[in-house]
C-alpha cells in the first residue's frame, strides 16, 4: 500500500468514504483540493503530461462527481490505468496477438494489433488532434465539461477512428479501465479510501457471510475492508 504523503491527504482520504463528507464537507472546495493534489501526488510512469491530463478529465466525465461522491479521477482511476500499462495486461500478454490482423464483423471481437498501452497512446494523440482541429487549438482537457461529455459521446457512438483505433473501441477501453480503477482493491492505485466500494455498499475483502446469508431484505451492516486491512 502506498502511504499518503501529507497530513491533509490523510485527513481527506479518511473522510472520503463517509457520507458526511459529501453532505457537509464543502464539496467544491474539497474536490478542488483533492483534484490538484491527486494530479501532483502521483507521477505517471507511462503516460506523458498531455495524455495524463486527457486521462484525468476523461475518467472524471465517465464517472463524475455528484451527490453520491467523488469522480473517478479523485478516486485514483488515472493512477490505476497508468500502473496497469506496465502489467502483462497492459503489454497485451493476456491476448492472442498473432497476425494476420484483419477487420471483421464487430461481434467477432477485438482484431487490432495494439495492446492496451499502444491503444491509449495512439487514440489519445488522435483524439487531441481532433479536438485541436475543432476547438481552436485546445486539448481535450482544456474543454469545458459539457464539451468533454459531448466528445466522449461522439467517441462512444460515432463511426470515427482515432489513429488505427475505432473511437468506440477506445471509449469502451477507457470506460472499462476507469470502472476497474474505481472498484478494484486499492492496492492497484484506485478506489481511494475505498470510496468506490462504499458507494455501492460492497464490503470488499470481508468474504465471510456465514451469519448473513439471508437478511430478509435488510442491508448488510458492515463497511468495506481492503486486502491490506484498510477500512472505511
Amino acid at each position: 500500500m502506498k502511504i499518503p504523503s501529507s497530513t491533509r491527504r490523510n485527513f481527506t482520504a479518511g473522510l472520503l468514504g463517509s457520507a458526511s463528507f459529501w453532505m457537509y464537507g464543502g464539496h467544491k472546495v474539497w474536490a478542488d483540493a483533492l483534484q490538484s493534489e491527486s494530479l501532483q501526488s502521483y507521477e505517471p510512469k507511462y503516460f506523458n503530461r498531455e495524455e495524463w491530463l486527457f486521462l484525468n478529465a476523461a475518467c472524471a466525465r465517465i464517472f463524475p462527481a455528484d451527490a453520491h461522491g467523488p469522480d473517478a479521477a479523485l478516486l485514483g482511476a488515472p493512477e490505476f490505468i497508468d500502473r496497469q500499462m506496465d502489467t502483462p495486461y497492459g503489454h497485451g500478454e493476456l491476448w492472442y496477438m498473432s497476425g494476420p490482423f484483419k477487420e471483421g464483423a464487430p461481434n467477432l471481437g477485438y482484431q487490432l494489433s495494439l495492446p492496451p498501452r499502444d491503444l491509449y497512446r495512439q487514440a489519445i494523440a488522435a483524439a487531441n488532434t481532433y479536438v485541436r482541429d475543432h476547438h481552436q487549438g485546445q486539448t481535450f482537457a482544456q474543454l469545458t465539461i459539457p464539451e468533454q461529455i459531448a466528445l466522449l459521446k461522439l467517441f462512444e457512438q460515432g463511426t470515427m477512428t482515432l489513429g488505427a483505433v475505432p473511437a468506440h473501441t477506445f471509449f469502451e477501453q477507457l470506460r472499462q479501465n476507469t470502472l476497474e480503477g474505481v472498484f478494484s482493491d486499492p492496492l492497484y492505485g484506485g478506489n481511494k479510501a475505498l470510496a468506490g466500494w462504499t458507494l455501492l455498499g460492497f464490503p470488499g475483502a470481508r468474504a465471510d457471510f456465514m451469519d448473513w446469508v439471508n437478511q430478509k431484505g435488510a442491508p448488510y451492516p458492515f463497511g468495506p475492508v481492503s486486502i491490506s486491512g484498510e477500512t472505511a
Binding site: R61, D66, I149, R175, F183, L200, F202
Partner: peptide, 30 residues
C-alpha cells in the same frame, strides 16, 4: 463483485457512464 457489476452497467435503459450512471448503479447493486 463490483467491477463486473459496474462494467455491465445498471441495466434497463439506464446510462452506462456519466450523468445518472452512479444513481442507477447504486439502485441496481443494492
Amino acid at each position: 463483485k463490483p467491477i463486473a457489476a459496474a462494467v455491465g452497467g445498471p441495466g434497463g435503459k439506464a446510462p452506462t457512464w456519466g450523468e445518472g450512471y452512479k444513481e442507477a448503479m447504486v439502485d441496481t447493486y443494492r
